[in-house]
Protein backbone atom coordinates (compact mmCIF):
# COMPACT_ATOMS: atom_id res chain seq x y z
CA UNK A 1 0.00 0.00 0.00
CA UNK A 2 2.62 2.49 1.10
CA UNK A 3 4.77 1.47 -1.88
CA UNK A 4 1.95 2.19 -4.28
CA UNK A 5 1.44 5.62 -2.79
CA UNK A 6 5.18 6.36 -3.02
CA UNK A 7 5.24 5.20 -6.61
CA UNK A 8 2.31 7.38 -7.67
CA UNK A 9 3.54 10.46 -5.86
CA UNK A 10 6.97 10.26 -7.46
CA UNK A 11 5.72 9.12 -10.85
CA UNK A 12 3.37 12.11 -11.08
CA UNK A 13 6.15 14.44 -9.95
CA UNK A 14 8.46 12.97 -12.60
CA UNK A 15 5.97 13.51 -15.39
CA UNK A 16 5.00 17.01 -14.26
CA UNK A 17 8.59 18.18 -13.82
CA UNK A 18 9.63 16.60 -17.13
CA UNK A 19 6.87 18.59 -18.83
CA UNK A 20 8.03 21.69 -17.01
CA UNK A 21 11.56 21.24 -18.37
CA UNK A 22 10.37 21.91 -21.89
CA UNK A 23 7.68 24.47 -21.08
CA UNK A 24 9.14 26.96 -18.58
CA UNK A 25 10.60 30.14 -20.03
CA UNK A 26 13.63 30.54 -17.82
CA UNK A 27 16.46 28.14 -18.82
CA UNK A 28 17.78 28.02 -15.24
CA UNK A 29 14.35 26.92 -14.01
CA UNK A 30 14.29 24.29 -16.77
CA UNK A 31 17.65 22.93 -15.59
CA UNK A 32 16.40 22.82 -12.01
CA UNK A 33 13.26 20.97 -13.09
CA UNK A 34 15.53 18.48 -14.85
CA UNK A 35 17.31 17.94 -11.53
CA UNK A 36 13.94 17.23 -9.94
CA UNK A 37 13.07 14.78 -12.73
CA UNK A 38 16.31 12.89 -12.23
CA UNK A 39 15.80 12.81 -8.50
CA UNK A 40 12.26 11.44 -8.66
CA UNK A 41 13.30 8.84 -11.27
CA UNK A 42 16.02 7.78 -8.88
CA UNK A 43 13.38 7.22 -6.21
CA UNK A 44 11.32 5.13 -8.64
CA UNK A 45 14.40 3.01 -9.36
CA UNK A 46 14.85 2.66 -5.62
CA UNK A 47 11.35 1.21 -5.33
CA UNK A 48 12.35 -1.28 -8.07
CA UNK A 49 15.22 -2.39 -5.82
CA UNK A 50 17.86 -0.99 -8.17
CA UNK A 51 19.69 0.84 -5.38
CA UNK A 52 23.03 1.15 -7.09
CA UNK A 53 21.54 2.70 -10.23
CA UNK A 54 19.44 5.07 -8.13
CA UNK A 55 22.41 6.30 -6.15
CA UNK A 56 24.65 6.65 -9.17
CA UNK A 57 21.92 8.58 -10.98
CA UNK A 58 21.80 11.09 -8.15
CA UNK A 59 25.57 11.24 -7.76
CA UNK A 60 26.48 11.44 -11.43
CA UNK A 61 23.59 13.28 -13.03
CA UNK A 62 22.32 15.48 -10.23
CA UNK A 63 25.68 15.98 -8.61
CA UNK A 64 27.93 16.48 -11.61
CA UNK A 65 26.22 16.72 -14.97
CA UNK A 66 23.43 19.07 -13.93
CA UNK A 67 25.79 21.40 -12.09
CA UNK A 68 27.76 21.63 -15.30
CA UNK A 69 24.53 22.28 -17.20
CA UNK A 70 23.58 25.13 -14.89
CA UNK A 71 27.04 26.62 -15.22
CA UNK A 72 26.79 26.51 -19.00
CA UNK A 73 23.28 27.95 -19.02
CA UNK A 74 24.36 30.82 -16.80
CA UNK A 75 27.53 31.54 -18.75
CA UNK A 76 25.95 31.45 -22.19
CA UNK A 77 23.72 34.42 -22.72
CA UNK A 78 20.94 32.68 -24.63
CA UNK A 79 18.60 35.01 -26.41
CA UNK A 80 15.30 33.35 -25.57
CA UNK A 81 13.18 35.76 -27.57
CA UNK A 82 14.99 34.96 -30.80
CA UNK A 83 14.73 31.24 -30.25
CA UNK A 84 10.98 31.56 -29.90
CA UNK A 85 10.62 33.28 -33.25
CA UNK A 86 8.64 31.39 -35.85
CA UNK A 87 6.84 29.27 -33.27
CA UNK A 88 3.48 29.74 -34.99
CA UNK A 89 4.99 29.30 -38.43
CA UNK A 90 6.55 25.91 -37.58
CA UNK A 91 3.61 24.75 -35.47
CA UNK A 92 1.74 22.84 -38.24
CA UNK A 93 4.85 20.90 -39.22
CA UNK A 94 5.68 20.13 -35.60
CA UNK A 95 2.15 18.97 -34.92
CA UNK A 96 2.17 16.77 -38.01
CA UNK A 97 5.41 15.10 -36.92
CA UNK A 98 4.03 14.63 -33.40
CA UNK A 99 0.82 13.04 -34.72
CA UNK A 100 2.75 10.69 -37.03
CA UNK A 101 5.08 9.66 -34.20
CA UNK A 102 2.14 9.03 -31.90
CA UNK A 103 0.41 6.98 -34.60
CA UNK A 104 3.51 4.85 -35.20
CA UNK A 105 4.02 4.26 -31.50
CA UNK A 106 0.38 3.28 -31.02
CA UNK A 107 0.48 0.94 -34.00
CA UNK A 108 3.61 -0.74 -32.63
CA UNK A 109 2.22 -1.08 -29.13
CA UNK A 110 -1.17 -2.42 -30.27
CA UNK A 111 0.09 -4.77 -33.01
CA UNK A 112 1.24 -8.30 -32.27
CA UNK A 113 4.49 -7.96 -34.24
CA UNK A 114 6.18 -6.66 -31.14
CA UNK A 115 5.06 -8.40 -28.03
CA UNK A 116 5.39 -7.83 -24.39
CA UNK A 117 4.97 -11.30 -23.02
CA UNK A 118 8.65 -12.23 -22.79
CA UNK A 119 10.00 -12.58 -19.30
CA UNK A 120 8.15 -13.01 -16.06
CA UNK A 121 7.37 -10.53 -13.33
CA UNK A 122 10.43 -10.00 -11.16
CA UNK A 123 10.19 -11.25 -7.60
CA UNK A 124 11.22 -9.16 -4.63
CA UNK A 125 14.62 -9.99 -3.18
CA UNK A 126 15.35 -10.63 0.47
CA UNK A 127 16.22 -7.64 2.61
CA UNK A 128 19.90 -8.52 2.86
CA UNK A 129 20.35 -8.85 -0.90
CA UNK A 130 22.98 -6.42 -2.13
CA UNK A 131 22.33 -5.06 -5.55
CA UNK A 132 25.71 -3.34 -5.64
CA UNK A 133 27.57 -6.50 -4.73
CA UNK A 134 25.81 -8.46 -7.48
CA UNK A 135 26.62 -5.77 -10.02
CA UNK A 136 30.25 -5.68 -8.92
CA UNK A 137 30.40 -9.46 -9.16
CA UNK A 138 29.63 -9.50 -12.87
CA UNK A 139 31.16 -6.14 -13.72
CA UNK A 140 34.63 -7.33 -12.72
CA UNK A 141 34.35 -10.89 -14.01
CA UNK A 142 32.20 -11.47 -17.08
CA UNK A 143 32.12 -7.85 -18.12
CA UNK A 144 35.62 -6.80 -17.14
CA UNK A 145 36.82 -6.86 -20.75
CA UNK A 146 33.92 -4.73 -21.97
CA UNK A 147 34.40 -2.45 -18.96
CA UNK A 148 38.07 -1.88 -19.80
CA UNK A 149 37.33 -1.28 -23.47
CA UNK A 150 34.70 1.29 -22.52
CA UNK A 151 37.37 3.04 -20.45
CA UNK A 152 39.74 2.97 -23.43
CA UNK A 153 37.05 4.61 -25.56
CA UNK A 154 36.90 7.47 -23.06
CA UNK A 155 40.70 7.74 -23.18
CA UNK A 156 40.60 7.94 -26.97
CA UNK A 157 37.96 10.65 -26.72
CA UNK A 158 40.24 12.68 -24.44
CA UNK A 159 43.27 12.22 -26.72
CA UNK A 160 41.23 13.08 -29.82
CA UNK A 161 39.68 16.17 -28.25
CA UNK A 162 43.02 17.50 -27.05
CA UNK A 163 44.95 16.74 -30.22
CA UNK A 164 42.25 18.37 -32.36
CA UNK A 165 41.85 21.53 -30.31
CA UNK A 166 45.17 22.27 -28.63
CA UNK A 167 46.94 24.93 -30.61
CA UNK A 168 50.11 26.69 -29.62
CA UNK A 169 49.74 30.38 -30.31
CA UNK A 170 52.95 32.32 -30.73
CA UNK A 171 51.56 35.54 -29.30
CA UNK A 172 50.10 34.24 -26.06
CA UNK A 173 51.70 35.70 -22.97
CA UNK A 174 52.16 33.11 -20.31
CA UNK A 175 54.24 32.74 -17.21
CA UNK A 176 57.11 30.33 -17.00
CA UNK A 177 57.36 29.39 -13.31
CA UNK A 178 60.62 27.53 -13.84
CA UNK A 179 62.27 30.62 -15.30
CA UNK A 180 60.76 32.75 -12.56
CA UNK A 181 62.12 30.59 -9.80
CA UNK A 182 65.58 30.14 -11.22
CA UNK A 183 66.08 33.86 -11.65
CA UNK A 184 69.05 35.31 -9.75
CA UNK A 185 69.58 38.61 -8.12
CA UNK A 186 72.05 39.67 -10.78
CA UNK A 187 69.43 39.23 -13.56
CA UNK A 188 67.00 41.72 -12.12
CA UNK A 189 68.94 44.11 -9.93
CA UNK A 190 71.47 46.55 -11.26
CA UNK A 191 73.52 48.49 -8.77
CA UNK A 192 74.35 51.91 -10.04
CA UNK A 193 77.05 53.92 -8.35
CA UNK A 194 76.04 57.54 -8.12
CA UNK A 195 77.77 60.42 -6.55
CA UNK A 196 76.18 61.52 -3.35
CA UNK A 197 74.00 64.62 -3.82
CA UNK A 198 74.84 66.10 -0.48
CA UNK A 199 78.07 67.62 -1.60
Amino acid sequence: MIETIIFYVFAVTTVVSACAVVTVRNPVHAALFLVLTFFTSAVIWMTLEAEFLAISLVLVYVGAVMVLFIFVVMMLDINVARMREGFVRHLPLGLAVAVIMLGIMLSVVTSDVFFMDVGSEPVARAADYSNTKALGGVLYTDYVFAFEIAAVILLVAIIAAISLTLRKRGKTKYQSPAAQISVRKADRLRIVKMPSSEE
Binding site: Y143, A146, I149, A150, V152, I153, V156, I159, A160, L164
Partner: peptide, 24 residues
Protein backbone atom coordinates in the same frame (compact mmCIF):
# COMPACT_ATOMS: atom_id res chain seq x y z
CA UNK B 1 28.48 -10.66 -27.80
CA UNK B 2 26.67 -7.64 -29.19
CA UNK B 3 28.17 -5.52 -26.42
CA UNK B 4 31.78 -6.21 -27.35
CA UNK B 5 31.11 -5.95 -31.09
CA UNK B 6 29.70 -2.51 -30.52
CA UNK B 7 32.44 -1.37 -28.15
CA UNK B 8 35.17 -2.52 -30.53
CA UNK B 9 33.43 -0.80 -33.42
CA UNK B 10 33.15 2.46 -31.51
CA UNK B 11 36.79 2.34 -30.43
CA UNK B 12 37.80 1.87 -34.07
CA UNK B 13 35.44 4.54 -35.42
CA UNK B 14 36.27 7.15 -32.80
CA UNK B 15 39.98 6.79 -33.49
CA UNK B 16 39.37 7.02 -37.23
CA UNK B 17 37.26 10.20 -36.93
CA UNK B 18 40.10 11.89 -35.08
CA UNK B 19 42.73 10.60 -37.52
CA UNK B 20 40.84 11.99 -40.51
CA UNK B 21 40.57 15.43 -38.92
CA UNK B 22 44.21 15.21 -37.89
CA UNK B 23 45.47 17.67 -40.48
CA UNK B 24 43.78 20.70 -38.93
Amino acid sequence: SFLLVYLGLELLSLSLYAMIAFNR
